[in-house]
Amino acid sequence: MSSGDSGPSSSKQLVQQPAAAGRSPNQPPLLGAGGRKVIVLKSGDEEEFEVDLLDAMQSRTLRRAIEDGCGDGPMPLPNLTGPVLAKVVELFRRHRGDPRWADELQETEKEGMFKDYAPQKPTAEVKGFDREFVSVDRDALFDLLRAANFLEAPGLLDVTCDAAADAVMNMTVEEVREYFGLVNDYTPEEEAALRKQHEWAFQ
């Protein structure tokens, strides 16, 4: 099961409070229902998502922004679309306590913010979610990969890069060219020499 917090529907229950005037950047971000801190992410197409602050911290990019005091109002993420951001936010929620990034969070431990965030091994349920998460077509996977790269989120990167590697694995040279619309820019001589050099890869 997921970690010992408010459960799978928590992100829906969280309510954004209006930002009080004159908040200093060092003050903790908004508090949601149940005292959890919430930030709002805004996609390029103006869709807003409420995210548990601690879930958002899985992204180094968001963490830096939050630590710089940008977490008070909606955080614009113009290069992510609503559907992509929705998927990403869901993955962050499911990856709560995932050791792929939780170890790193312990280092930034401040004011006991992460005290109920003990790292734990991904459960079978999380692994199942991850598999489902990347069961998308090639272009959608590219979108998720680029989101992972922009957000610098290790868990998201892991899941998406694994999926991309799985897609390429065991493909022949011709299949790779076909699948990605790659132009073979070798001369016939170069290609023949390379194939000979890499004989071991064709056995």
């Binding site: 890069c161 390429v168 694995m169 790779v176 619309g181 790659l182 890869a201 056995q203």
Partner: peptide, 29 residues
Amino acid sequence: DLRLLPDELLCAIIDRLAPGDVGRLACVS
């Protein structure tokens, strides 16, 4: 179409392959 991915992503993906896969990819372009 892989041009859409930055080099660090391409490297991270190739990192996850087996030596044989990498050898064949080297012959692609």
